[in-house]
């Protein structure tokens, strides 16, 4: 429980670190790694502008998204309430409402973002499920605590973890799927959906995004070298993961929407290979 609280509290730091690394790789100074905290406190204290064509759903959505994502994180310790598959469904609860909120203000941007987000999400889902299956089959359970406590590392879990990393890139809106830094009409996906949000609601949505990111990072880093899962090692592994994500973001360009299908098919093949390796008993 304390572990989860620390994770939740430190989650914005991950984004700060990634952005710092990105800036340093580009030989720029960049904002401090605590910038996400400053942003959040600014969002929370600022007033909020809501479009007059919005319904109650628009105001409620940030809380639903926040609650669903935080619950997903909490399931790590409340393992009697739900398992890893329930986590996938909780993320889809958050996404469902976010996509609806994108359609609510009656703008083209929001609809465009919702459509693209749901498109990518529906292709990510089978890949995520296959890699979750591969990991859970090695652990012989879908219970999160037991998956985290797994000690051995096998070929299937390595492949599935790699696929899960690609899934995480898509789910957290990173390059090459989406770009968190852009507000260019034609390319934005997640940002287009939340374009009408401001103030406190935007802050909640950002925070939920950090939670989701930390969940994936934590899952992936505890699956890599599972022998070393003491907090110190986990933090080191997560920092390495930050470096990898930053390097990927700096060195690649965002893909065209329909190239994402190829990217995700690659991830899908990777996770399918993981299952095949599992069957062959590697």
């Amino acid at each position: 429980m304390i572990e989860i609280a620390c994770l939740a509290f430190l989650s914005p730091l991950l984004s700060g670190i990634i952005s710092k690394i990105k800036n340093n790789l580009r030989f720029r100074q960049g904002p401090s790694i605590f910038q996400p905290y400053f942003n959040l406190s600014k969002y929370f204290s600022k007033e909020e502008v809501v479009s007059s064509s919005c319904s109650w759903l628009f105001r409620l959505t940030p809380y639903i998204v926040f609650a669903a994502t935080l619950s997903a994180l909490l399931l790590i310790s409340f393992n009697r309430v739900g398992d890893l598959i329930a986590v996938i469904f909780l993320f889809s609860l958050a996404r469902f409402f976010l996509a609806l909120a994108g359609l609510d203000p009656a703008t083209t941007f929001g609809g465009m973002g919702s459509s693209r987000e749901m498109f990518i999400a529906s292709l990510v889902e089978p890949v995520a499920m296959l890699s979750v299956f591969a990991i859970a089959l090695s652990a012989k359970t879908t219970n999160l605590t037991f998956i985290f406590a797994q000690q051995s590392m096998s070929v299937p879990t390595i492949m599935a973890t790699l696929a899960l990393f690609l899934v995480a890139l898509a789910e957290t809106g990173r390059i090459p799927i989406d770009n968190q830094e852009t507000h260019l009409e034609l390319t934005m996906i997640h940002e287009a959906m939340v374009l009408e949000y401001s103030g406190r609601s935007l802050g909640l949505l950002e925070l939920a995004g950090y939670f989701k990111q930390v969940f994936f990072f934590w899952l992936i880093s505890s699956l890599i070298l599972p022998g070393f899962n003491e907090p110190v090692f986990l933090i080191i592994k997560m920092l390495v993961l930050c470096l990898v994500v930053a390097a990927v973001e700096v060195s690649l360009a965002k893909m065209r929407l329909f190239r994402v299908v190829d990217f995700l098919s690659f991830a899908g093949i990777l996770s399918a290979m993981a299952i095949v390796a599992l069957v062959l008993g590697a």
């Binding site: 064509s53 319904s55 759903l57 996938i88 889809s92 996404r95 469902f96 996509a99 609806l100 994108g102 359609l103 609510d104 203000p105 009656a106 609809g111 919702s114 459509s115 749901m118 498109f119 999400a121 529906s122 292709l123 990510v124 889902e125 089978p126 890949v127 995520a128 499920m129 296959l130 299956f133 591969a134 089959l137 899908g268 399918a272 299952i275």
Partner: peptide
């Protein structure tokens, strides 16, 4: 495993379908 993957894909597409059905009909 592959049946589960197809079920997951179906789930994702269903969510998209009903975001469309509810969103376009009731919102905006």
């Amino acid at each position: 495993c592959f049946s589960a993957a197809i079920l997951a894909l179906t789930g994702g597409l269903t969510a998209a379908c009903f975001v469309k059905a509810f969103g376009i009909t009731f919102l905006g």
